[in-house]
Every structure is written in structure tokens, then in C-alpha cells.
Design a protein around this nucleic acid. Structure first.
Lengths: 118, 118
DNA sequence: TCACTGTCTCGAAGATCATCTAATCAACCA
DNA sequence: TGGTTGATTAGATGATCTTCGAGACAGTGA
């Protein structure tokens, strides 16, 4: 598990898109993260994982949605491949936790400096 | 033009997803904005519009991409429907500008407070 | 070893999306 | 009025995505 990882542009952050335009590679990487968050179920999963204060068991996630287990598992894999979360099996259960660096990177991409508003 | 507007949750911002979990309505609204940004072409369009320092003509956008004019027009409509940009025809040309409030709302949704990292 | 629980993978069906060409609309100019 | 240019809309097509059921895998406990 947690073998595959998104391309590693998550650390060195680039300027917000409101300051300088993205090049194509940055756009492809950014779009992949936004695509991972573009489903209401995935966004709620991400939000539940991120607000859990550490980590959260899959069994605590599945019950919150009206879709089947395999579907939740699929959505979690998409979030994992986008580099937004990671996971680990411990005994019977699998635990997920957020990767804040990646979230900060995406958030900064969209941030609007005060100087850019006026 | 600029008739249709995204549902108006763009002003009053909710807590970041790393602080409290989203309810379903917030997730649907947020996912719609992320979906609009989930295509590399749309993300670059958004970035070019946001970094133009005011507004930008469609004719300055179309030439930057290897897809046809109607395709660019389609992507711009998606950004418009997500409430991320607005536009106006002036004479022969159509100009687009960013809506920073919406961008700030999305950015804040993903922001990671320092207290939440430790 | 065997049964059971929790989670993931696989393959298929239906829905949605990106893109194109052709046609239309809006503004300008001769 | 008719021609030209810039941009959007309409309709079609191929690709991608969401979801499910069935089955496989990992771990626990009798």
C-alpha cells in the first residue's frame, strides 16, 4: 500500500495562478489534484480524513455514505494517487491520514494576494 | 452573457475541511468548483485570466492552445458556470475577468491551519 | 485448519465529458 | 445590404468516469 505517489511537485510551491500563469506541466499536475477533489463523495472523504485529527479507519468512512464498499475503496485510491492521503493496514483495519503539504500546495495555487484584488 | 451564476455560497466562507467535515450540500458545491478546475486547459485558462491583471480578451487566450475555438469557448463557459470568471462583450471582442471571492473561498476550503499540522 | 470480518481488485454497464465540424449570432465596415 | 471577423451554440462521437456485484486477499480467533 501507499506504493504509488503523485509526481513530486508537492513540496516546492509555485506562485499562485493569480500572480503568474501556469506552464503546461504545472497545469497537468494541478488539474490531477483538482480532479481527485471534483467528486462530492471524494471531497467529503477528504474532509472527514483531514478533520479527523490524525487518522481514521475505513470502517468509519464507509458507513457515512450511501454507496457500496468497493466504491468507497475506489474513491480512496483516487485520493491516494493524487497524493492527498496515505494509508496503512494495522491488523484487520486500514487507516487513512491526510498529507497536508499537498493540500497546502493546492490551496496556495488558488490563493489571491491582497495586492491582486485591487 | 453572465446570466447563469453558481449558487451563492461563495461569499460566506465555511471552515477549512481540515478543521470540520463538510456537509453534503457544501461538498456538492465545492466539488463543482473543483471539477471546473480539473482540466489542464481550464486550469491554464483560469490562470491566464487571473494573472492578466484585470481582464483579457478571448482572442488572446485561443491562440495559446492547440484545441479549436469552440472547445476554448466550451471551457470558458464551464469556468463561468462555476462562478470563477465573468465576461462581457465590448464591440467585436469578448473580455473575461476573474472573480477573486470565489477563488478565495475554494482556497480557504483547502487551507491547512498551522495548528492542524502538528 | 476453518470460518468470519474488513478491505481491495476485477470486469461490466451506464452516465458524463472533451473535442470536433457545421451552423448561428453579433459587431463592424464598405 | 452584403461581406468579413470574432465568438458561441448545436449535435455527434469517442474516451473517461462512477458505480456495482462477484470474487480475492489479509488478518483474527475458535
Amino acid at each position: 500500500m501507499s506504493k504509488q505517489q503523485a509526481s513530486d511537485q508537492s513540496s516546492g510551491c509555485c506562485a499562485p495562478i493569480s500572480v503568474s500563469a501556469l506552464d503546461e506541466a504545472q497545469a497537468v499536475d494541478g488539474a490531477a489534484v483538482f480532479k481527485a477533489l471534483s467528486d462530492p463523495i471524494r471531497l467529503r472523504l477528504m474532509s472527514m480524513i483531514a478533520s479527523a485529527g490524525g487518522e481514521i479507519c475505513v470502517c468509519d468512512l464507509t458507513g457515512q455514505f450511501e454507496v457500496s464498499g468497493p466504491t468507497i475503496s475506489h474513491h480512496l485510491r483516487v485520493l491516494r494517487q493524487a497524493g492527498l492521503v496515505d494509508c496503512e493496514r494495522r491488523g484487520t483495519w486500514v487507516y487513512y491520514w491526510p498529507l497536508p503539504e499537498r493540500m497546502k500546495w493546492v490551496s496556495a495555487l488558488l490563493s489571491v494576494p491582497e495586492t491582486a484584488i485591487a
